[in-house]
Nucleic acid binder design. Structure first.
Lengths: 204, 204
DNA sequence: GTCTATATTCTGATAGAC
DNA sequence: GTCTATCAGAATATAGAC
């Protein structure tokens, strides 16, 4: 009993560290996420954290994994047969995620190249990573969209990356540079979808 | 003589501080831009810097002003009568700037909301700020483009902001998340230009 | 496993001698 | 104007008692 119970308690504390870290990140940004503050929030000494995480960076990574997974799940929950409609839904879901969790979004995509790289190459078990999977959803939609199209010049992968770049541009300007955009970002996202899907010439 | 010469020397040292700061920023990123390192590079004590700048933040701001100005100048140097061609040139110029000075770009657009705000609201004398002016160039092109178009649904300002968001998305993903894009970013930028300008229906 | 205590290193910024 | 010396505080991480 004791071994299992101990492992379980350890697991619980580890999760609690992640929970308070996420809260601090969400409300005060990554700079405020220090070992001391986390320790204070869970009512342990700073040293105790190092029994569960190697470093502050590792906590950051785990928060990014979880964040990217939530983004992926939002995209995945968009169900529409018509690829153009689906892409429109992806656009909305993407911006909604960024808006709901801006500091995590920032950490994943805008903070540190090394960290971004780690987050994107990460995979659990045999599954593809959430980043890869999310791009995969978009790619699939564009692949379907191009069936029947005559102008095959732009490859689906290029369209997918362009679409994603556009969404990222909107999301990141809103987060980091709020003053920049005067137009409604959801409207801009719909324009983005319309222009990119329209250009391929597909009518489903 | 002495007053003028002194003022001049002071000006020179101030500029030297900015020069080495820019170099540190370019080569090692903003985190490495510390007062001590700057002091070492100009062969003065850290305290000497405070005779020319109030704080580290002020140095950062000035570097951003200068960077945004260089971006604006690159855009301004694009000369083409046809607005669609001009926009295509803007796209290239924008990405080239971001590529040439990624850490400054990061500081301007991706680092700190407060700083971004300050940089964008900044104006010298009576002129518009470089940020405003740059967006103005793009806006003008889209306004010209829409003359003769029937579908006036998207306003020029919306198109300009969408265009800019797309470019920013490409530039910032390349900088902060290099692994993200597999396609050539210049090609994606041309696709972006083509889809946005094409959709307005203008043929110049 | 957890704590106390601390090593170590860094930061921006300032006071006051010269 | 410039320096030396230092403040006041932050940070990550670890050693060793319990």
């Amino acid at each position: 009993m004791s071994t299992i119970a101990r492992a379980r308690r350890k697991q619980v504390l580890r999760q609690k560290i992640l929970d308070v870290s996420r809260e601090i990140l969400l409300s005060q940004g990554f700079a405020a996420l220090t070992m001391r503050r986390v320790a204070e929030a869970i009512d342990y000494s700073p040293a105790a954290i190092y029994l569960h995480f190697e470093s502050r960076e590792q906590i950051a990574q785990e928060l990014c994994f979880a964040g990217l997974k939530r983004l992926y799940e939002r995209l995945q929950s968009v169900a529409a047969k018509d690829p153009a409609t689906r892409l429109s839904g992806y656009a909305r879901a993407y911006l909604e995620y960024a808006q709901s969790d801006p500091e995590t979004y920032r950490l994943i995509f805008m903070a540190d190249s090394q960290l971004s790289k780690a987050v994107f190459t990460h995979r659990e078990a045999d599954k593809a990573g959430a980043g890869e999977a999310a791009l995969g959803l978009i790619l699939t939609a564009f692949t379907e969209l191009q069936i029947g199209s005559k102008k095959l010049q732009p490859k689906p992968m290029e369209l997918a990356e362009l679409f994603w770049s556009g969404l990222h541009g909107l999301a990141s300007l809103r987060i980091a540079c709020s003053l920049a955009l005067t137009s409604d970002e959801f409207r801009l996202a719909q324009m983005l979808t319309a222009t990119i899907t329209g250009k391929t010439g597909a009518r489903s």
